[in-house]
């Protein structure tokens, strides 16, 4: 149980980073931490006590494997995070080019 709570704590660290930090790069890092926490939670959910890696080889006896499905799904979710992170970084670089700053309190053209 404690690992799940730690995982949620990590997620909250990411959220804190997104909500409270003023630097765009730190916000992106917050997003990455939160994504990582969710992926970790997914892997932990699939864990079985004493389970081994879900590999299948010709001479292996299949017993007590961890759940293999979330591992495939987490790979997909990592690819998605890669895409969104790359896009965020590209937008951040463009923002820096236009505004010459990473501070979001100074990047405020849109109000109301």
């Amino acid at each position: 149980m404690i690992v799940y709570l730690l995982c949620l704590l990590l997620f909250c660290v990411g959220l804190y980073c997104i909500l409270r930090k003023r630097n765009i790069i730190k916000i992106i890092v917050g997003v990455i931490i939160a994504e990582y926490a969710v992926n970790l939670l997914f892997i932990l959910v699939a864990y079985r006590r004493g389970g081994r890696a879900p590999l299948h080889s010709p001479d292996a006896v299949i017993e007590n494997m961890v759940d293999a499905l979330p591992q495939a799904l987490v790979l997909t979710s990592i690819v998605i995070s890669l895409a969104s992170t790359a896009l965020l970084i590209a937008i951040a670089m463009r923002i820096y080019q236009k505004y010459r700053t990473f501070d979001i309190t100074k990047i405020r053209e849109l109000r109301g």
Partner: peptide
Amino acid sequence: LEAAFKYAVMSTV
């Protein structure tokens, strides 16, 4: 860019 960044971060969350 500013709007897209805000949108991307919030929507990713």
